[in-house]
Design a protein around this nucleic acid. Structure first.
Lengths: 237, 237
DNA sequence: GCCTGTTTGTCAGCTACTGTCAAGATGGCG
DNA sequence: CGCCATCTTGACAGTAGCTGACAAACAGGC
C-alpha cells in the first residue's frame, strides 16, 4: 500500500474519544499542510525547505507543525490510510486464498489513492524514492507492514509459527511491489500502476523457477557443503 | 552483504592518493570508535548515547567523530567491506550462472564477517533491526545494493534493459536474506546464519507454486480484469 | 454565556551535524 | 636529522530538527 507508515501514532489522540468532527478537521489540516509542503519541496527542494518554511506556508507555528506530523519526513509519507486502524485496512477473510486477498487489497488501496489525486501520489512517490532519508523510511515501512499480515495469514491458514516460508513469500511480494512502484515513479507515472504491479508479481512467480535451478547450482558449489552447522552458539544475556 | 552501506563517502579521501598506510590507520580508528560506540549503546541504549559520549570514549572531539562517520547511524552500519570499492566486492564473472554467483558471494561475505568477530556482527545486526532509524537505513542500503548488481548481471546475460524480471528476482533474493538475518538476530545468533540464508532462499524458490496459483486467483478476481497476459519475457541466456 | 477539554504559540533547550580556520601531527625526502 | 607539504585535529560558532512546559486562545455541550 502506497505510503502507509506504521502507525506509531505518537499523537495524543489514540483511543481517546476525540469527537469524529475533530478527527475530520485534523485530517483536513494534515492534507493542507502536506499540500503546502509538497509545493515548497517542488520549488526549492526537500533539503532546502525548512520546517519553519512549511509551518509558515501553512500559517502555523513550527511547534504546531510537529503536533500534526512527528517529523518532516512524515509529511511526505503520510496518507489518509494512516488514519485508519490497521485491522480495518488489512482484514483477511479466512477461507479464501489469503495471498490473493492481500494482493487484491493492495491493488485496491493503490487504485483508491491514485484515483483520488494522481498528481499527489506521483509527487509523494517520487520524493519517497529520491530523498535518501525518506526512501529509507519508505522501504522500512513497507517491509514492516508484513508483520501484522504475517500473523493474520498464519492464523488463517494455520501456519507453522516458526516457518520461513510465509515471511519470505510476503517479503518477496512486497519487494516486487516496490520494484513496480519504483518503475512507475521513474517513468513519471506514464505507465499504468496496477498493470506494473501485476507484471511485477507475475515476474516474481516466474523467477521462482529460475531460482530453483540456481539454488541447485549454488548448493553444489557451496563453499562449505551447505551443511555448516559449524558455528558456535554465542549466547548473550 | 551484512551491513554494506552505499559508499556515499562524503569524506574527502576519495580517489586522492591517500597512502595505504594512512588508509589502514583510518580503518583501525574506525573500528576502535565503533567498538566504543557499541559498548556505550549496550550500556545506555542508542538514543541515550550522544555523539559527544562516543567521541569522548574514543578520546576525540565530536567534530572528529564526524570526520570518520558521516552520521551516528553509520557507526552501527559500517564495516570493513564498505572500505573496498564496489566493483571489487561484487564482481560477477560472465558465463556461470550470475545469480548463483551472487548468492555465493553474499554467503562468503557473511561468513567472513561472522568469523572475524561473531559478537560484533550480532550486536550490529541487532541494532540494525531494533533502532528504527538504523533499521530503515539498513533495509535501504540492502535494497539499494541491487542497483549495481543489476547492471552487471544484465550485462552478463545480455538482458532486456527494461525488464521487470531481473530486478524483481534480485529484490526477492535480498528480501529473503533480510528475513533470514532478521530471524538469526532475533534468536540471538543461536541458529546458523548461513543455514538460515540457504533455507530462506530455498523457501523463496518454493513460493513459486503458491504464487502462481495465487496470481491466477487474484487475476480472476481482478477489480479490473487487468488482462495479465503480462507474464512477461522469461528470457535468460 | 459559562465550563471543560483541546489546540495553539512562545520560549527555552537538546542533539545531530556542518563550515571555517588555525594549530598540531606525520610521513617522505633530502 | 630536519624540513616541508600534506593530512588530521580541536575549538568555535551556527543551523535545523525536534521536545517539554506552560499559559493564552478556542472550541463544543449545556
Amino acid at each position: 500500500m502506497p505510503h502507509q507508515t506504521i502507525s506509531e501514532d505518537p499523537e495524543p489522540n489514540s483511543a481517546n474519544g476525540t469527537s469524529d468532527l475533530r478527527q475530520r478537521k485534523r485530517i483536513r489540516t494534515k492534507q493542507m499542510v502536506q499540500k503546502e509542503a509538497l509545493r515548497l519541496f517542488a520549488d526549492k527542494g526537500y533539503d532546502q525547505t525548512t520546517v519553519d518554511d512549511i509551518a509558515h506556508a501553512a500559517a502555523m507555528s513550527s511547534r504546531t507543525f510537529f503536533r500534526y506530523f512527528p517529523s518532516k519526513e512524515d509529511v511526505v509519507l503520510w496518507d489518509e490510510y494512516d488514519e485508519r486502524p490497521m485491522q480495518e485496512v488489512l482484514q483477511i477473510r479466512p477461507g479464501e486464498d489469503p495471498l490473493a486477498q492481500l494482493i487484491m487489497r493492495v491493488r485496491e488501496i493503490f487504485a483508491d489513492i491514485y484515483q483520488k489525486d494522481p498528481e499527489l501520489l506521483l509527487t509523494r512517490t517520487k520524493l519517497s524514492f529520491t530523498v535518501p532519508e525518506i526512501r529509507a523510511r519508505f522501504l522500512n515501512a513497507q517491509l514492516t507492514l508484513i508483520g501484522p499480515y504475517l500473523a493474520q495469514i498464519a492464523d488463517a491458514i494455520g501456519a507453522p509459527r516458526d516457518d520461513l516460508q510465509l515471511p519470505v513469500t510476503l517479503a518477496a511480494l512486497y519487494s516486487a511491489m516496490i520494484i513496480a512502484v519504483e518503475r512507475w515513479q521513474r517513468h513519471d507515472g506514464r505507465e499504468d500502476l496496477l498493470r506494473l504491479l501485476d507484471d511485477a508479481i507475475a515476474a516474481l512467480a516466474a523467477s521462482a523457477t529460475d531460482l530453483r535451478d540456481t539454488v541447485q547450482t549454488a548448493a553444489a558449489a557451496g563453499t562449505r557443503p551447505t551443511k555448516p552447522k559449524a558455528v558456535a552458539a554465542k549466547r548473550k544475556s
